[in-house]
Design a protein around this nucleic acid. Structure first.
Lengths: 257, 257
DNA sequence: GCTATTAAGG
DNA sequence: CCTTAATAGC
């Protein structure tokens, strides 16, 4: 079973890249973030001939998540099921062939002294609680998406320069690790503990890609019983070098189930 | 001698089309309108390898004229030389090999009951006065550009529908003809008196091009001594059918001088 | 429709 | 740098 994640930074703009990757890799599940399209304008027809089922929830301009799957999800849940802001265009949980898959676009946080950063930290706490109520660490489960956190120094270029960056700041890493600690394992770290491999290169830094000044902020995590069955995890940098790329690229993992 | 005119509707967006046309046709002079680029951002380097001299005056967002010429202009004058609004991004006069060439982007006029329409009518009156002071009907001279006037019924699809359109309204045609009457002759009309051939097809009408619902509003005119030497005038529709086209296309005229 | 601009988000 | 949206001009 092959599961992939990709922050598209506008699905409509990235359709050619997504469709090509889907055909070339035929993952069982592809989780997308930042689709930036409201449901009424979701490009459903584009996926008709692919044979993939499409699960999506978006809003105008920002956020938006989608799950493409070869099998039809048995269950679909959008957003948190408690609290004020349900953020259903940042969180979707599907159950496919009995396997729960949570796809998240975690708030970026803007700046560490902003309310948005507090919201991000709280978001991780809510997510741990959400896992608690809907998943079990003893049962196979997947959590993937754009986490907006580079967990280790090796996961960001010049970590010492980014100590106050919302994606590397101590509190963000702690919030992330605390949610991971509920019972998830990062399968990239498991298979490539010492590899420096980014999934995101900022558009703004002119030569961020050429100089490989990136971040590993997109992750695939699973509960232990599934992590044991992980056979491969790779980042495909190709789509980041394509014409009209997203600022992120694809991460995928293969499991023997 | 070959002279051409083209409303580019953003020179930066139309660079590939302009460069390809320039290489394919090698006109002595190409007049451009609606460059929509301020001088500080004019894409000078793009023309470096073409061997053409570039004369330009623009502003942010709107208007803008340019003249590409194989020979260096001996003289260059921007805008009217009198009045409040000099409109130097709508009018440029160059003298090339002794031949005066006036390139105009005449105000479109918005609606016939708007002040902009009055401005357009006045603009034609000012232009006749400008010709009076700078040119002679007895001497070779060229006036070309986007005139925003379809002079005859044959120059617009369904003329009866456009009697109140600012580009066909009686007063606009009269203002245009009065300025032409100073001493210019439309060389397209001279060589193809009965030919229906448009130079502009609106982006908005979905099938304006396929259904040939266009306007002949781009013109090349000369004084009599030069009109007698006109050997060919053609509209090149190709660039209107190209990828990412302007809503106008190229008009060119060849003279035996 | 297709330009362009501004402003916001990342 | 690249996306979105809104607005204006033609």
């Amino acid at each position: 079973m092959k599961i992939a994640t990709f922050n598209v930074n506008s699905l409509r703009k990235r359709l050619p890249i997504v469709l090509a990757w889907l055909e070339a890799h035929r993952p069982d599940v592809l989780c997308l973030q930042e689709t930036k399209v409201q449901d009424s304008e979701f490009p459903l027809l584009a996926f008709e001939s692919t044979g993939y089922h499409v699960t999506f929830r978006g809003m105008k301009s920002y956020n938006g998540v989608a799950v493409l799957s070869r099998a039809k999800p048995e269950q679909v849940f959008y957003g948190f099921d408690e609290g004020e802001e349900r953020d259903d265009s940042r969180l979707v949980r599907v159950v496919i062939a009995g396997l729960p898959i949570v796809n998240t676009y975690v708030p970026q946080g803007f700046e560490i002294d902003s309310p948005k950063y507090q919201y991000k930290l709280m978001w991780y706490a809510r997510l741990r609680n959400y896992f608690d109520r809907h998943l079990s660490p003893d049962q196979p489960a997947v959590w993937c998406g754009d986490m907006n956190v580079a967990p280790r120094p090796i996961d960001v270029h010049s970590p010492e320069k980014h100590l106050k960056h919302v994606c590397y700041h101590e509190a963000a890493r702690k919030a992330y690790e605390d949610t991971v600690g509920w019972g998830f394992e990062d399968v990239f770290c498991k298979l490539h503990p010492d590899v420096r491999q980014y999934t995101f290169w900022d558009y703004r830094a002119p030569s961020s890609l050429e100089a490989n000044k990136g971040w590993r902020i997109d992750h695939i995590l699973t509960t232990k019983p599934l992590a044991e069955r992980c056979r491969a995890v790779e980042v495909d940098v190709g789509p980041r070098r394509a014409k009209d790329p997203s600022d992120h690229t694809f991460l995928w993992a293969e499991f023997s189930i």
